[in-house]
Structure formats: C-alpha cells, structure tokens
Write a protein that binds this DNA or RNA. Structure first.
Length: 921
RNA sequence: GCGAGGGUAACCAAGUGGUCAACGGUGAUCGACUCAAGAUCGAUUCGCGCAGGCGUUCGCGGGUUCAAAUCCCUCCCCUCGCACCA
C-alpha cells in the first residue's frame, strides 16, 4: 500500500499546478490553518472534502485551483513558546508526547516562529500524504514580507474608505501580564462578560458614595444604602474628587480611565446610620448588610426593596429585629402579575425565610426579567417602559448628577493563566473596523442574498451575524503580524489580516519572486483593481499577473467549519465588498460540521485527538479519505471510530478485488450485461449530481454501494461458471473514475493497471449514455428480484422441502384493473367505474376484490415503477419463462411458469400484476 | 439567557403526507469456505406468524388528515455561536 501511495505521489508532484487556460475555471479555497500543533483527523476532513470536490471538477474538464497557505499571525504561539521555555508540564507533554515533536526541535520552540515553521512544514507533508491536489507553488505564510505589503494595501483601502475608526474599549486585562486576555487565556471565568454599570453618586458630607447598578431607573425607589460593616473601605481621590469605595473598587477604577489616589481607610461600621442623599431619592440612611461584596462594583449597594428581592428581604430581616421601622419600600414600577411591591410578592409567594435562601438568585432573575420585559414606571416618574427608562435615567444621571460608567464582570472571579486577577481595562487609541455601519451591513447582506450557500440552512445564521456584528477591535499590541500602516505602534489583528487573501493566492507564486519593497499599494491597485497610476510602470509581468487574477477571481467556493460563521466567514464578506468591485465578490461558501472522536468532541488540549498522520500510516490515505467524506455529509458532524474506519478499508479492498477479477471476464453481451450497464447510467447521473451539490456521502452511496449492490445481483444472475462478460470491463472503467476523487491512490493504480494511459486524476469524468438505459429490462429484473424475495420469505416460514414451485402471473383482466386504478385520480371512486364494465361485472366480487388489492398494491409500489409498468406493457410470462434456469438454480427445484387463469390451484387466484401467485408444493 | 441547527431501530444515518417496518453502512448472531484464524460470500437482526401477512415503532404529549417519521401546537434533550480569539 505504501508503495502504491508513493508511486501516485511522485506522479502527482507537479500535476496540480494550475495556470489560466482555455478551460472554464473552478477556484475553491479553504480557511488556511494556524499551524501551532499537529494535524488531527478533524483537520483532515476540512481539507479532504474540498480536495474531493477539486478532483471532481478537474475530471469534468475545469481548470481547478486549490491553493494553500499558513496563518501564522497572532498571539497563541507566543504563549506556547513562553510556556515551553518556562518548562510548563502541560505544554511540554502536549508537544512532546501527543504531537511527537523531536527533542531537538522542541528545544527551539522557545522562538515562536520556529513553532509555526515546524508545523507548517508538517502540515504540508501530511496534506501531501493525504493526496490533496494542491498547487503548492502558491504557498505562503502571513508573515512573509510580500504578504505584509498586501495587508498594508488592504488596510490603506479600508482606512481611506473610513472603515477603520479609533476609539476606547473595555477589555479583560491581566495587570500581571500587562495584556488583554482572551477566553483561552483564562484559568477561571472563561465565559465572563463585561457588564456596563452606572455609578449612582450619593453625597455624604464632602464626598461621593457611588453605588454601581444595572438598573438606574430604580434610583427613584432607593430607601437606603447597604454597606458591609466588617469591610474596610477607603477614601480616595478619584480624578481629584473624594469618593468612599472599597479598596478593590479603587484598584479597578484605576484601570478605567480614572486617576485614583487612596488617602485614608474607613472601617465599614463607621458608615452605618450615616445619611446620604441623591437628587432622585432624597436623603436616605446607610444600613449594614453582610451580603455586600467589596469585590463587586464599588462595594456599596443602593437598596430598592420594592423591586429587588435581596433588598426587600435584607430590610425585612433588620426590621424583624425591631430596627429601622420608619423605612418603607417605595414602589415605582408597575408590572402585570404583581402587586405594588413586586419584590415583596415574589418573596412571599416563594415563602422565603431569610436572605440566605438559595432560591434568592432565581427570584431576583424572575423579578428583574418581568420588570424589564413588561414593566412601566409609575406616572409620577415619567411612565416610560423599564426598557426605555433604564437608558433615560442613566443618561440623566450622567448629565446632571455626576454619574459615571463602571465596567465589571458578571462573574465573581476571573483569573488569568498566569494566576493574576483579571480586571476590566479601558484601552485607548484602539482601532475598530466599523462593522456596525448599517450601510456596510446592507451592502454585505445584499451580496449574501445572491450567494450560493451550502447547506442552505446556514443562510439564516449568516443573516443574523451580519445584523449582530458590532465594531471589531482590529489592532493588537502583542503577537506576530503586520503593522497598521498609519499607526505602526499597532499590529493588525489576525482575523482581520485573513479576509481577502484568496485574491493573493491567484498570483502568490509571482509575488513571492518580487522584492517586497517594490510592492507598493499602487502596484496592488493595478493588480487587483486595474487602477493605473503614473507611479507604476505596467510591465509585461504585471500585466500577466493582472490577467491571471482576473482569470481566477472571484473564488467559486470557500470552505470552513461552522464555528467560523460568526467571525471569519462573515468578516471576509465585509472586506470583499469594501475593497473589490462587484465582479470580484465571493460566489459561494460551504460550511462544515464538527469532528468527534469515539463520540466525544475532538480537542487537542484534552488529548482527545487522533493525528492525521497516524491515521494515514495505520489505514492508508484512501481509507482515511473515504471514511472522512463518506461517513456523513460535509456539513454534518462526523465521528471517527477505528472500527468503522477498518471496515472502510475492507470496502476499498473489495473494490480492488472486483476490478482484478474482471480480467477473467468474457467478451459477449447478454441481457444481464445490458441490465448492468443500464443501471450504471443512473449511478453516473446520481453520483455527478451529488458531487455538484457537495454531497460526498451521497456520492459514495451511489458510486460505491449502489454499484456494488448491482454487481451482487449481476453475479447471481450469471450462468454457473461464468465470470461475467464485457459489461464488467465497461463498468470498471467507469467505476474507477467515479471513485477517483475519493480514493485517488487506488484509482490511479487501477486505472493504469486496466490499460489506460495518463493519470486518472485528469481522465474525463464518466457521462451517462442514454442509449444504454433500458427501462423495460430494469423492470423485468425488478419483477424477478421481488419475486425471488417473496419465494424466499415464504420458504422461510413454511419450512417444507418443496418438489416444485409454480409461478402464476396475473391474467390480462387484472392488468386492466391495475391500469384503471393507477390512472384514476380518485382511488375510492374507481371501483364504481370499473364495475360499470359488463365483463367485469360478470366477474362479480372477484373483480371488486382485485380492485381493492390493486389500490393497496399501488400505494406500496414506487410511483416510478408503476408508470414504467403501465408504459412498458411488460410480458410477465415471458420474463419468468426466460429466467426459469436461473430460478431453478436459485431454489434447486423444478420451476413452472403459467398464467394464473390457466391454473386450477386455489392460490393462483391471488396473482396480481407485478406480484405473481407463488405455489410451493 | 439570546441566535442558529438538530433529536429515526444496538450504533452511524437516509427519509419531509401514501413508495416506510423505514435506503445504505457498522456491529451482532447463524451458515458456507478454511486444519484454524482472518478475509470473502450467503442469511437473520421490533414482536407474532408452517404462504409472501398482521401488530406496534421514528425525543415526550396533544392535534389536523381517509392516510403522518413526514404538517400544526406544548414540553424535554443535544450541538454550534454569543467577539477581540485561532
């Protein structure tokens, strides 16, 4: 097998380098990999499915371009190399034991570039081993200087078009690493969201006591503040003004654009019973509460007992001890289903005893949810819906009452991989791609409407993503990448530098030969947009590149896994419409499902992976390919299980053996040969249609299993001792080609072995030969096989050793009824119609019984079969008579064939069209 | 929570009103071949049945229809995404 693979690989070495030609083009691309680790079988499918499609269209005579490159920009490898450098057990285990990186290479991984170089080489090697028909001349990495020039050109356009804006932005930030942190950098709190709180500024003496709230509109109903008496608060000068807040809050605020200077400590208990004031609620006292967390918000809480269950119950607890009797909840929101004091209702309905009840969180959600979705402020507070009042009051407070915004996580603890506590930091001078721009969105949506999406169900998700996208922070301080042309302190973020590179592929092999300093934006303007300026001398070389770009672009299909819909796949549409003219916009996308390994999600970090290279070594490239494209359609999730893969290998072996056996086939052509070839035409059509629709699994069902099933029947029908005839040889030529896109190694070998010149990879795709389709013959065989099945099932039940089997075909009058029933629209009225006929009426009950039986029968048959039966006027008696030898061989008993009308046996009466009576005795 | 997709026999999976007890594949069981194992071939694989049939199934429950896995409603469960990250 290795031998066979190597022979094919050397024959293919430069075969798939494609250049513009007279042929129609087909350009497909896949999201390029980020080579930070070894390829597993999930990656394998991502690249093998497009390869099957590429090979298919190549055989259909298209000039196919399937390029590949490597995405090495971004931060992950930097973290990886740091972890390896510091001797992190987990990282070293992953790379040394799972990815099998040799020790000397691993030692060099302290340099991040070495990691991506190592794995991109490995990717290329393994991809080649899998038989991917990639044009490797076009390969590049995203840190190549020429590519950086391309990115600079792209961003120059985005910048000039006003798509890139500067702004401030809250991010998760690790003070220890001095860096923003993404989900994968977190030890704890990986789903933490940043919430935008409004600080309500209460006055206390000369200072502010700010409370953080998501519900600014409830300020009207504040009856008191809560302070934790056992916490030590601080007095701090925040932007020059004195605030009383928790120590943690002071620290947090310092990351959020505030200058904070702590001046003294204030024990919480000293604040109790102090009086504070706010214009919206007047003077209120400070009360003690143990539930106040100094690490949440400012460490100070405003209390709205009418609408917040926590506040209500905390107040009730205090009052039950006889304290603060003068405080009463102040209602301000009206909600259907609740009384004046929703918090009170909810607490009492749930029978809550005190504030330690575990149901309090759910209760809070319930009340907040109801108020947000259905609540309205009382008339004296403006009468607005809560949904709107929230923003109105917040705006008012910020404008007039000194309120500010404070960002905070929605979970308690967020911890960086380095162990540091993560905070919210406001980043300044951050650049944003303005995906929120409605005009830009509309442009993308408009283009999407005309795109070919596979499977069609993903359209809704794309539409929603376009709608939902907000501005995207597109620059970074850390990582590999290209610098922003007009602000070189920033690097272009790695998703943003991978949006129009499909255009780069079309001329990548030329670009790599040009010194990067010559690749000015003006040059790219000419190459990609056809814009000529005096700054560029249009050489023949440039002219040729321009033509090559125009030949290939736009791409026909982009392939990627479905988790990229909400970013990459949609981003690249935004960038295309922003930069390229209508004639160069993407035509289609194919979205993949995810991969499972033995039923569990594949994940490198959890060690649940099967390396692609190991799979190829163990099972052979063709087996891996056939399994990956055949076990599910591309957009469905697939599950890699060794036992199933093993049986795939056996299937390929069976194919191989069958082709070998045909060498013994004769040259004559019998009816069953004609049948086999007739059937084959349908399989050709169905395989072709399936591949046109990217249904690799369906294609395999037709091209492999359906053909195999025919062969089974064919061999059964051959006379004893026959090894088959000419049809087998014709079939093999077609069969090898139908399977070539899926199992190219085996096919390449067999193609040569069966005496064909040239590579099967470039052989012409089989086309259906209508003249070979013989519906009458197919119908006869169908009748025969159905009857054989019936005989077998009867034999199984009755368990006697028969001495003779008689097949009685239905008499002509029953066929008339059958035809009448089949032609009738109203199957219930047909019985009356039939009985109008004198000859039928004379048959009496038998005729009406037969009619009823025909109705049932017709419902059971495929409609196609019925229409063919009606047109073909098949001679059943003849079919069975001709097949008598076969039937006698099958059942090893004498077989009689007769017209049921001529039999006196009681069972003969049950004969129906296409369902002869069978008498076994 | 929100958005998108999905739940079919031991497993994977086809099937969107009568072709459906439900294609195909896998696994399992039996049989043939073999000294044996493997491979290969044949049969069976919801229940019942000594005549090709009948009964009950397609996440749960309800409804529409002569007829529902397929259409409608309630609920339950799974997968993906929810952003600065590949």
């Amino acid at each position: 097998m290795r031998q066979l693979e190597e022979t094919a690989l050397s024959a293919w070495e430069h075969a798939f380098e494609s250049n513009p030609s007279q042929k129609e083009k087909f350009y497909l691309t896949v999201a390029y990999p980020y080579p930070s680790g070894a390829m597993h079988v999930g990656h394998g499918r991502t690249y093998i499915v497009p390869d099957v499609i590429a090979r298919f269209w190549r055989m259909r005579g298209r000039e196919v371009l399937y390029p590949m490159a490597f995405h090495v920009t971004g931060a992950p490898v930097i973290g990886i190399s740091k972890r390896i450098a510091r001797g992190d057990e987990k990282a070293i285990h992953l790379y040394r034991d799972l990815y099998k990186v040799p020790p000397d290479v691993l030692a060099q991984f302290v340099n991040p570039l070495t990691i991506v170089r190592h794995f991109s080489e490995e990717y290329r090697r393994v991809m080649t081993e899998c038989g991917l028909s990639i044009d490797w001349r076009r390969r590049f990495t995203t840190v190549d200087p020429q590519y950086s020039k391309f990115i600079e050109w792209q961003w120059k356009h985005l910048g000039e078009a006003g798509r890139v804006l500067k702004g401030a932005h809250p991010v998760r930030y690790c003070p220890q690493c001095e860096n923003p942190v993404g989900d994968h950098d977190l030890l704890e709190g990986d789903k933490a969201e940043i919430l935008r709180f409004v600080l309500i500024m209460f006055r206390w003496k000369d200072a502010f006591i700010p409370t953080a709230t998501l519900r600014a509109e409830t300020t009207h109903g504040v009856t008191n503040l809560w302070v934790n008496p056992s916490t030590t608060y601080v007095r701090a000068l925040v932007d020059g003004k004195p605030w009383i807040i928790s120590r943690q809050a002071a620290e947090k605020l310092s990351y959020q654009d505030h200058e904070v200077r702590v001046t003294e400590e204030i024990p919480g208990y000293t604040l109790i019973d102090q009086e504070v004031s706010h214009p919206l609620c007047g003077k209120v006292p400070i009360l003690p509460a143990g539930f106040v967390d100094p690490d949440m918000g400012t460490g100070m809480v405003m209390s709205v007992p009418a609408h917040a269950p926590f506040d209500y119950i905390a107040l009730r607890d205090l009052q039950s001890q006889g304290k603060y009797q003068r405080i009463h909840p102040i209602p301000l929101i009206k909600v259907p289903g609740y009384g004046e004091l929703p918090a009170k209702d909810a607490v009492e309905r749930a029978g809550i005893r005190d504030q330690t009840d575990p149901r309090m969180d759910a209760l809070t959600q319930e009340v907040y949810g109801a108020e947000f979705s259905q609540g309205k402020l009382l008339e004296k507070y403006g009468g607005e819906t809560v949904r709107m009042a929230r923003d109105t009051v917040a705006a008012l407070a910020m404008e007039k009452y000194d309120s500010l915004v404070m960002y905070e996580f929605d979970v308690q603890s967020v911890v960086c991989r380095c162990g540091g506590q993560v905070v919210v930091k406001i980043l300044h001078d951050q650049w944003f791609l303005q995906y929120s721009d409605p005009a830009w969105k509309a442009q993308v949506a408009g283009h999407l409407a005309g795109m070919n999406l596979v499977p069609p169900e993903v359209r809704a998700e794309f539409e929603r993503t376009i709608d939902w996208l907000k501005d995207w922070a597109c620059t970074r301080k850390v990582g590999l990448g290209t610098r922003l042309p007009w602000d070189p302190a920033w690097l272009i973020e790695p998703l943003s530098d991978s949006t129009v590179y499909m255009a780069y592929y079309t001329i990548a092999h030329h670009l790599s030969q040009i010194p990067p300093e010559e690749l000015s934006p003006d040059v790219f303007d000419y190459l990609f947009l056809g814009k000529e300026t005096e700054n560029v001398v249009i050489s023949d070389k440039l002219r040729q590149m321009r033509e090559e770009f125009l030949f290939w672009y736009p791409y026909d299909f982009r392939f990627s896994a479905k988790d990229l819909i909400s970013n990459h796949l949609t981003f690249q549409l935004f960038h295309h419409v922003a930069i390229f003219p209508p004639g160069c916009l993407p035509r289609g996308m194919v979205v993949f499902g995810m991969g499972l390994l033995n039923g569990a999600k594949m994940s490198s970090s959890k060690g649940n992976v099967f390396l692609l290279e190991d799979a190829v070594r163990e099972f052979g490239a063709d087996t891996v390919r056939m399994f990956l494209v055949g076990s599910a359609e591309p957009w469905q999730d697939f599950d890699w299980r060794n036992e199933l893969v093993n049986s795939t290998r056996k299937q390929i072996e069976r194919f191989w053996n069958t082709v070998q056996e045909t060498r013994a086939a004769g040259m004559s052509e019998n009816e069953i040969d004609l049948w086999l070839l007739s059937r084959l035409q349908t399989h050709i059509v169905k395989t072709t249609e399936a591949l046109e629709r990217f249904q690799t699994r369906q294609a395999l069902q037709e091209a492999f299993f359906a053909v195999e099933a025919d062969l089974k029947w064919y061999k059964r029908r051959l006379p004893t001792g026959s090894a088959g005839d000419k049809a087998l040889k014709d079939l093999c030529s077609v069969w090898i080609r139908l399977l070539a896109p899926i199992i190219p190694f085996t096919s390449e070998h067999l193609w040569k072995e069966t005496g064909n010149a040239g590579l099967v990879s470039f052989a012409s795709w089989p086309e259906e030969d209508r003249s070979r389709i013989n519906p009458g013959l197919e119908l006869s065989e169908e009748l025969l096989s159905r009857t054989v099945e019936d005989v077998e099932s009867i034999q199984k039940i009755i368990q006697i050793t028969p001495s003779v089997i008689t097949i009685c075909v239905a008499p002509s009058w029953k066929r008339e009824i059958f035809a009448a029933v089949a032609g009738a629209i109203d199957k219930n009225a047909v019985i009356r119609e039939i009985m109008k006929d004198d000859a039928m009426r004379r048959r009496g009950k038998e005729a009406s019984d037969v009619t009823r039986q025909c109705i049932t029968l017709i419902h059971k048959f495929p409609p196609q079969l019925i229409s063919q039966y009606l047109q073909g006027s098949i001679d059943e008696l003849m079919v069975f008579s001709k097949a008598r030898d076969f039937l006698e061989k099958e059942f090893a008993v004498r077989v009689n064939v007769t017209d049921a009308g001529e039999s006196t046996h009681a069972r003969a009466r049950s004969a129906l069209p296409f369902k002869p009576a069978i008498i076994i005795e």
